[in-house]
Design a protein around this nucleic acid. Sequence first.
DNA 1: TCCGACAGTGAACAACCGTACACTCAAGGC
DNA 2: GCCTTGAGTGTACGGTTGTTCACTGTCGGA
Lengths: 218, 218
Amino acid sequence: MGSRNVVVMTAEPATRLERKERTRRALLDAALTLLAERGFAGLSLREVTKQAGVVPTAFYRHFASMDELGVALVAESVRTLRDMLRAARDERAGTTDIIRASVHTLYEHVRAHEDHFRFLTRERYAGSGPISRAIAIELTLFSSELAIDLARFENLRKWSAEDLHMLADLLVTAMLATVIELLEARPGDRETDETIIRNAEKRLRLVLLGVPNWRSRA
Amino acid sequence: MGSRNVVVMTAEPATRLERKERTRRALLDAALTLLAERGFAGLSLREVTKQAGVVPTAFYRHFASMDELGVALVAESVRTLRDMLRAARDERAGTTDIIRASVHTLYEHVRAHEDHFRFLTRERYAGSGPISRAIAIELTLFSSELAIDLARFENLRKWSAEDLHMLADLLVTAMLATVIELLEARPGDRETDETIIRNAEKRLRLVLLGVPNWRSRA
DNA sequence: TCCGACAGTGAACAACCGTACACTCAAGGC
DNA sequence: GCCTTGAGTGTACGGTTGTTCACTGTCGGA
């Protein structure tokens, strides 16, 4: 009560563009906060602005509609996802157990950006709106990037592009399932986390076990 | 314009319970219809009753809240899912290509009950409400049933229960991914449908290819 | 130094929401 | 044949929603 506010604002707002960017961020963060316990469809413009500490009409200075705010969140969340893929590339370079390393980077990134991952996984199929569409597009791109990565492996050198995409999609789907399990786990439950990780590794191991024997059909 | 109404009501409603059941169905069907283009969170009680041709307050004679209506929809949709599993069991009994047969039954059932499958896949992660919880529980049960089925196969005789569940989960996840692809496909596009089916078969083939070489670790 | 641009304000609106309440009127047990 | 039960009606309410409009005050370029 007597203590100062927890969030300390960087005292002087300097330039005008910085001010604007700051409330834009406040809006995005407000939405992300509210999205912890509700789907995007359950958010109202007024709620978000209230949470951001701004009057409702100010919203329109930054976004034309809630959908536009949502698409911005997609872009932001996808960046997090891409960062993870890059980190996975780097991290597995030094190790022999690629699966273990990949799942580990996944785990770390999910725990560090729960809100982004929650948003992506929840809204992916939530409706037919612009947000689900945007996520679908970005996830296809993401899967393609992974396919390119996969093409470098010895076992996969002579796989067709189509089969590589199939494999990449399967891996992405499995990974996203793991993400959801992690997000639904009771926070701080170390034991559950390890079970989920072990399961994710098993799944990947099983899938990749089939790779050497793969013979593409018509 | 001059023609009679398309839907012909079975003229006399007979008993009172039947009447009640009929408007209950009307409410459920109204919801399913509206859910074709919106998420459950985007439905309002008033909308549903209007679509059902009933006054808003009549809703409470059947459900205490929209959530309760949603849970009823889960039960109904899960029944469809279970019917599918049973059909798959029967259908694959006569064939050698189990994968092809299973994917085929999946396809037929999805196309015959698009609304149920759309509801399940969309609302599965849509939030943290009673509906998502109900779906999660039912899907776990479903996965367990599949695991029991799997245990009968020669290749899987000596797999641990944990590994069987892992495999069942993986298969369910892959199947649901196929369902979503089918639901998102442009209706009536035969070519796209076949591509999706072929892809689904490939995915399953790859996963099951790893089975003979599986060695469970600590 | 002045002046325009513009991020944020505050009041007002029409539309919709869930729900309470008093009601009608036909079905079905006695 | 009467009387209770209860599915469906109609009105009314208080609250929330998205969006409009005219406004204020300050930052930053001329």
